[in-house]
Design a protein around this nucleic acid. Structure first.
Length: 603
RNA sequence: GCCGGUAUAGCUCAACGGUAGAGCAACGGUUUUGUAAACCGUAGGUUGUAGGUUCGAUUCCUAUUACCGGCUCCA
């Protein structure tokens, strides 16, 4: 083996950019510690991630890591780091010999990786002590920090253990993955851990209970959501916005059945490509005619298209539906509102001519970005191209992908490309919404479909009188009501802006003896004005009521009324997160709230 | 589906091989409050479900359902 001379080997800048180098180096220390404590552990891979790193181990004896193991491993890692070991990169000169060596050690995963990279000038990283003894070596392209003094014993932490398939393939053996993170100093690590705690506080499942928003019940089944009144109100507002915007943008709104005979799904091809995700129902115990609970709305919309003859003059036809679909998910896949089995898509299908394609895509992109602006959500865009298993003509796929690219390029949009990640029926643009703490969730998507129009043989009559197949676009703006509301809850940390807040105003009379009549009068006035207002007439202290409304229930406004307010026909206003904001007459306050609601103000 | 974990009062959690306890919420009473938790009391549980081991299971074992952390998959 040949030692490689590296420039600046004994120095490295401690920056944000080199953090992943530190993390990857720490993963080698983790592997070294695990192998010392658990000699049977076989090494797989240990890369850096966005906010830390992991290492996959095959625990051949079937041992699973426990909390106590974590303590032991961390202690061992600290001991390793203290020895001030150096990391040295060496080239693998004799690949076959090294493969044989890995195999002899039982390191079958390393052997497999080396075999695969035999022509890529594979390198090893050696962890050496002062006397030049090699304490650990790992197949690795690097780079690494020069030595373990860069790794601070109080600036890394093992976080959790999880199963992960070797090479991410579910047919392979499941390995044990230790997730961890590392920073240049303990303050940064502490800041990260604090951020994680904050993230947990705004978890929509936690807030869902705390604010009485939704629930799932064992008796119903996993991923089937009960929307409680509080969240149903939010949804009502969102749906109102949705309908209004669709009308403005030239859509027609339709409604279609929840179930359909198998025949429909045979025509659409879902029976072939989507069967394992579909729920089936038998019409009768003795009848074998099968119905399918709809997993998608598209076939129904196509049938509506088919109900009439279409010409190039009537296209584009933009057909939208808040369509509830049911999709069977693998048992471990469900999560809160973001991954469910029954959900309502804000679905639309646009039938257009090839010439209209680019402008239609543009209009959808406008729609999505206008909508995200209202919620003050940032998003990233990804283009997913033809997967290995696809239906339709190759030429159409290429045409479709070019159309999507053209629309985005024309408007100078930044996007990543996910090669081979498209749906089986067409390429797509995905919009990944970033929540307040930087996690991304897929919501809006635009999918091109050259397949279904062919399968259903839908046509339009062109200018020259010939019958042609229209282009079909699938698109959602919110994605699904369930997921979007989950994201919305986390985005606002449960503190919905006034236009969405389940309760917008709480009225608190200072004394329920003296001020209740006045409180009731303004309560009715606000309710008649369409404001979601509640009157807190319980025999509790004013402080208690204020705290409960603003902090526990995250109501945007509390109006306190006492002698002074009664005299001047006013309310003393306290705003969530702000404090006292002064006194307004009742009419002024109603005006203010109404404006805030109408403008969908988000702070 | 896979690897690991969890399931106790409405919520958050405690305890234990000898049939469970706290805080908050709820309910009753006292208090009538001037801006982010007043006080006293009452009630509330087949310990997720079904089996098994045991003199005895909520505790140990098995299965199952749901949830949680991941992997795979996905709106």
């Amino acid at each position: 083996m040949l030692l490689i001379e590296q420039e600046g080997q004994n120095k490295m800048e401690k920056t944000q950019e080199t953090l992943s180098v530190l993390r990857h180096s720490t993963s080698h220390v983790l592997a070294q510690a695990v192998q010392k404590l658990f000699p049977e552990a076989k090494l797989a891979i240990g890369p850096a991630t966005d906010d830390g790193f992991y290492y996959d181990f095959d625990m051949t004896e079937g041992h699973t890591f426990t909390e106590e193991d974590f303590e032991k491993i961390e202690a061992e890692m600290k001991a390793i780091v203290k020895q001030n070991l150096t990391f040295e990169k060496v080239e693998v000169e004799d690949v076959d010999a090294k493969i044989a060596e890995f195999k002899a050690e039982g390191e079958i995963y390393k052997a497999e990786l080396l075999e695969e990279h035999r022509n890529d000038n594979p390198t090893l990283y050696l962890t050496k002590d002062k006397d030049g003894n090699v304490l650990f070596n790992d197949l690795c392209a690097g780079p690494h920090v020069p030595n373990t003094s860069y790794i601070k014993g109080n600036a890394f932490k093992l976080l959790k253990v999880a199963g992960a398939y070797w090479r991410g393939n579910e047919n392979n053996k499941m390995l044990q993955r230790i997730y961890a993170t590392a920073y240049w100093n303990k303050e940064d690590l502490q800041a990260y851990l604090t951020m994680i705690e904050e993230a947990e506080k705004r978890d929509h499942r936690k807030l869902g209970k705390q604010l009485d928003l939704f629930s799932v019940r064992e008796e119903i089944g996993g991923g089937l959501v009960l929307w409680h009144p509080n969240l149903a109100v939010v949804r009502e507002e969102i749906e109102n916005y949705w309908r209004t915007e669709h009308r403005k943008r030239g859509y027609v709104i339709v409604q279609t059945p929840q179930i359909a005979k198998s025949k429909l799904w045979e025509i659409s091809g879902h029976m072939d490509h989507y069967k394992e995700n579909m729920f089936f129902i038998q019409k009768n115990e003795d009848e074998d005619e099968q119905f399918v609970v709809k997993p998608m709305n598209c076939p129904f919309h196509i049938l509506i298209y088919q109900a009439n003859r279409h010409s190039y003059r009537s296209l584009p036809l933009r057909m939208a539906e808040l369509g509830t679909v049911y999709r069977k998910e693998k048992s471990g896949a469900l999560a809160g509102l973001t991954r469910v089995q029954g959900f309502t898509q804000d679905d639309a299908h646009i039938f257009c001519t090839p010439e209209q394609l680019v402008s239609e895509i543009n209009e959808i992109i406008d729609f999505v970005s206008d909508t995200m602006k209202i919620f003050k959500m940032d998003f990233e865009v990804e283009l997913s191209t033809r997967p290995e298993s696809y239906v339709g003509e190759l030429a159409n796929w290429e045409l479709a992908e070019a159309g999507l690219k053209e629309a985005m390029d024309k408007r100078g949009m930044k996007y990543d490309i996910n090669e081979g990640d498209g749906a089986f029926y067409g390429p797509k643009i995905d919009f990944k919404v970033k929540d307040a703490i930087g996690r991304t969730w897929q919501c809006a998507t635009i999918q091109l479909d050259f397949n279904l129009p062919e399968r259903f043989n839908i046509k339009y009559q062109d200018r020259d009188g010939s019958m042609k197949t229209p282009v079909m676009l699938h698109r959602v703006v919110f994605g699904s009501m369930e997921r979007f509301h989950g994201i919305l809850i986390e985005h606002y940390a449960g503190a919905f802006p006034t236009w969405l807040a389940p309760t917008q105003v709480t009225i608190v009379p200072i004394s329920t003896d003296k001020h209740l009549d006045y409180a009731e009068a303004i309560y009715k006035k606000m309710r008649n004005a369409g404001i979601r207002v509640q009157l807190d007439d319980r025999s509790e202290s004013m402080n208690y009521k204020i705290r409960e409304s603003l902090k526990e229930h995250k109501v945007p406004y509390v109006c306190v009324v006492g002698d002074k307010e009664m005299e001047s026909n006013s309310v003393a206003i306290r705003k969530r997160g702000v404090g006292q904001v002064g006194t307004l007459s009742v009419d002024e306050f109603i005006d203010k709230i109404e404006t805030e609601i109408k403008d969908k103000v988000t702070e």
